[in-house]
């Protein structure tokens, strides 16, 4: 059964959560992003965030362990209890995508310590195509706005505990997200060498904005940072991107994915084909952040649609 809360009570509800948890929610600072909430009034729920949630699970730089005088010092993972509020269906599914590939203890601990509260997407924009990506229902709590109330679906015991003091709903409110954009066909494995891709590749600056803002891009680098004078340092995991030449470079200087075309297509194909082959799920969650962030407005979704419509083998 769903729970209900008056919309005007939302800030008080969030404030009550902030007593026991670190609450992370969307805010708008020039662009919308997730931040640790200091004040419930800062919450900005009107549009999808451009910056995804992932840095709270996969920080830009994360210490794996410290060392001194050639001895490893174990890294203490702190277990702060957190709630993320205002996650859209795409954001929630992005975490499921990451769960299948990230297996190191720091990530798992952060996932276990975080309660996920979703929010129905009222206004998908012209870049959203989440309905094409076969997303799952995954949340601890999920808020549907209706009139002056939120109807709250409960997805887990952890979620149920948070709303146990709220009233039960008199009816059930569930809505499907309406998209303007659609990825018509995901069966693109044989289209890798299609000439249509060249137009996108020509526009690509290899600036890596798509991968940085993608909520499921998780590629990283492991580096050592050293304080030579103190004979100490740390091994860190740092965010990287398949769009960079340095990404596939090995000792001796050989770059295995050197051409811009192979790098660009690697991004698209990883999202739609490669990951799917392994896990039978799409890596792309259809949030459209890569399209929104692209400075040259590359729209690979349209490229796929046009490849497919030309052939006339639409599904």
């Amino acid at each position: 059964m769903q729970k209900i809360i008056e919309k005007k009570e939302l800030n008080n509800f969030v404030k009550s959560l902030m007593k026991n948890y670190e609450v992370i929610a969307p805010v708008k600072r020039k662009i919308a992003r997730f931040e640790i909430l200091k004040n419930p009034e800062d919450m900005y729920l009107d549009e999808i965030t451009l910056v995804p949630l992932k840095q709270f699970f996969l920080p830009e730089n994360e210490t794996l362990f410290d060392f001194k005088n050639n001895k490893i010092k174990k890294n203490k993972t702190e277990g702060r209890k957190r709630i993320v509020f205002g996650l859209r269906k795409c954001d929630l599914n992005a975490l499921l995508v990451l769960d299948r590939v990230m297996s190191y203890p720091e990530y798992i601990k952060k996932r276990q310590n975080t309660i996920l509260v979703g929010l129905y997407c009222e206004k998908p924009d012209e870049f959203c195509f989440c309905n094409s990506m076969e997303l799952e229902e995954h949340y601890d709590l999920f808020f549907y706005a209706s009139g002056d109330k939120y109807y709250i679906s409960i997805g887990s015991k952890k979620g149920a505990l948070l709303v146990r003091n709220l009233d039960n709903a008199d009816k059930e409110v569930k809505k499907e997200i309406k998209n303007f954009k659609k990825l018509e066909n995901k069966n693109i494995e044989k289209d890798y060498s299609n000439k249509k891709w060249d137009e996108d590749v020509e526009k690509c600056l290899s600036c890596s904005a798509c991968t940085v803002f993608c909520p499921t891009c998780n590629c990283f680098d492991i580096q050592d940072v050293k304080e030579l004078s103190e004979n100490s340092g740390k091994r860190i995991k740092t965010q990287s991107s398949c769009q960079l030449k340095s990404f596939s470079e090995v000792a001796g200087g050989k770059i295995f994915r050197e051409s811009r075309a192979s790098r660009f297509k690697h991004f698209v194909y990883h999202k739609i084909v490669f990951y799917n082959k392994r896990f039978n799920k799409y890596m792309c969650v259809g949030c459209g952040r890569c399209l929104r962030a692209c400075p040259t407005r590359i729209d690979w979704v349209e490229t796929i649609n046009s490849i497919k419509s030309k052939k006339g083998d639409k599904k």
Partner: peptide, 19 residues
């Protein structure tokens, strides 16, 4: 095959040869 393997756990994505 020689590729840049960093995590060795199928996470970092660096050694992907397509899928």
């Amino acid at each position: 095959m020689e590729r840049r393997m960093e995590c060795a756990a199928g996470s970092c994505g660096r050694c992907l040869i397509q899928d």
